Amino acid sequence: DLRRITSGETVRSETERLHKDGHRVQVERSIAAIHDVTQEYSGFVATYSDISARKASEAHIQTLLQEVNHRSKNLIAVVQVIARQTARMYEGSEFFSSFSKRLASLTSNQDTLLNSRGNQADLETLARSQFAHLVTPEDPRITVSGPAVQMNEATSQAIGMALFELATNAAKYGGLSKDTGSVTLSWVVAPGPDPKLEISWVESGGPPVSAPERMGFGSQVTGPILQGITSGETQREFHPDGFRWFFRAPLAKMTE
Rank of each mutant, 00 (worst) to 15 (best):
R4I: 01
T6W: 05
E9M: 09
E9V: 11
V11S: 03
R17M: 11
L18Q: 13
K20R: 13
D21H: 08
H23Q: 09
Q26M: 11
E28D: 01
I31W: 03
T38C: 01
F44N: 04
V45S: 06
T47R: 12
S49T: 09
R54P: 04
R54K: 13
S57N: 07
A59R: 15
H60L: 12
H60Y: 07
Q62G: 01
N69G: 14
S72L: 08
K73R: 13
I76C: 00
V78P: 00
V78G: 00
V79L: 12
A83G: 03
R88E: 14
R88V: 07
Y90W: 06
F96R: 12
F96I: 14
S97H: 12
F99L: 11
S100I: 00
K101C: 03
K101L: 10
K101V: 03
L103I: 15
N109A: 09
D111N: 13
L113R: 07
L113V: 08
L113P: 05
A121E: 06
A132G: 04
V135K: 14
P137L: 04
E138Q: 15
R141T: 04
I142A: 08
V144T: 13
S145Q: 12
S145F: 03
P147H: 08
V149Q: 00
Q150A: 14
M151N: 06
T155C: 09
Q157V: 11
A158V: 07
I159A: 05
F164I: 01
E165H: 09
A171L: 14
A171Q: 13
T180Q: 09
T180A: 14
T184M: 06
L185F: 12
L185K: 02
P191N: 05
I199S: 06
S200D: 08
S200C: 07
W201V: 09
V202A: 13
G206T: 07
P207N: 05
P212Q: 11
M215Y: 01
F217L: 15
G223N: 11
L226Y: 09
L226H: 07
Q227R: 15
Q227E: 15
T230W: 02
S231I: 11
G232F: 02
E233Y: 10
T234K: 01
Q235N: 14
H239S: 13
D241F: 03
F243Y: 15
R244H: 10
W245F: 10
F246P: 02
F247I: 05
A249C: 04
L251Y: 06
K253G: 01
E256I: 14
